[in-house]
Design a protein around this nucleic acid. Structure first.
Length: 264
DNA sequence: ATGGTTGGTATCCAA
């Protein structure tokens, strides 16, 4: 099974890029974040035309929004918590009935957290910290088996998940309060699937800001997008690819797709 | 220290 996670930053605007990704890589399942489309306007017909017959999504006007697109049948998980008492379309989950064995799949879009890394002064940062605490607690209190958690978690946890560790310690996405909480979350039952393929001492990015004139030349990236799996799935992992060239596609997202291959 | 760009929606907010 080939799984992709991608913060697409407007699904409707980037449907042609999703079509390109689909024809280039033939994913079985695609998890999207920042779809920015309310459910009644979700482009389901376009996605079915790309081969994704099974769709599960949660979107709202203007912001956020997550979606799972699948060639295999989905059984949505309908009783998910409302994180931070805000129904703001940051989490969907479903059981994927793949021929190689079904898996439980969670697709997250964690709050970005604003600019000021102080929960007292910045309510967005307080929201982000609380969101990660709540999700960590929830996963710690349930059995996690054959489960995959993906998404834009908006935190780069390791030193080499950012272009300059020391400089970014005070920048939201790489501050200790965030990386510590992410650590607690992953320890609720997961392992970092991307780092199974690339050692922690190697730089690894999935996002490059729009604000750099030449993203490739400056290469000031961060690994904000993640793929976690429960340890029982480790023997089935067969490959991981960051589709960095997508950052140069016409009208790109600032995030690039991450591909995980699981054995047939 | 500052500003740089993009998308959705409405002329500003969020990232």
């Amino acid at each position: 099974m080939r799984l992709v996670t991608w913060n697409i930053n407007s699904l409707r605007l980037r449907l042609p890029l999703l079509a390109r990704l689909t024809s280039d890589l033939r994913p079985d399942v695609v998890c999207l974040q920042e779809t920015k489309v309310p459910d009644p306007l979700f482009p389901a017909d376009d996605l079915r035309a790309l081969g994704f017959e099974h769709l599960h999504y949660s979107g709202m006007k203007g912001y956020n929004g997550v979606a799972i697109l699948s060639r295999h049948p989905l059984e949505p998980l309908s009783d998910l918590p409302v994180w931070y008492e805000k129904a703001d379309c940051r989490h969907v989950a479903a059981r994927v009935l793949a021929p190689s064995g079904s898996v439980e799949l969670h697709d997250f879009y964690v709050p970005a957290g604003g600019d000021e890394p102080d929960p007292e002064a910045n309510p967005k940062f307080a929201h982000k910290l609380a969101f990660v605490e709540e999700t960590a607690r929830w996963f710690a209190n349930r059995p996690n088996q054959r489960t995959i958690l993906v998404g834009d978690l908006n935190i780069a946890p390791l030193e080499h998940d950012v272009w300059n560790h020391k400089q970014l310690l005070k920048i939201v996405s790489h501050t200790p309060p965030e990386t510590e909480r992410l650590q607690t979350w992953i320890q609720s039952g997961f392992v970092d699937a991307m780092r199974q393929f690339v050692p922690p001492e190697e730089k690894l990015y999935t996002w490059w800001s729009y604000r750099n004139r030449d993203w490739k030349a400056s290469n000031r990236g961060r690994r904000l997008d993640h793929v976690w799996v429960t340890p029982d799935l480790l023997p089935e992992l067969s490959g991981m690819t960051i589709v960095a060239e997508a950052r140069d596609w016409p009208s790109p997202s600032d995030h690039v797709p991450v591909v995980l291959d699981l054995a047939e």
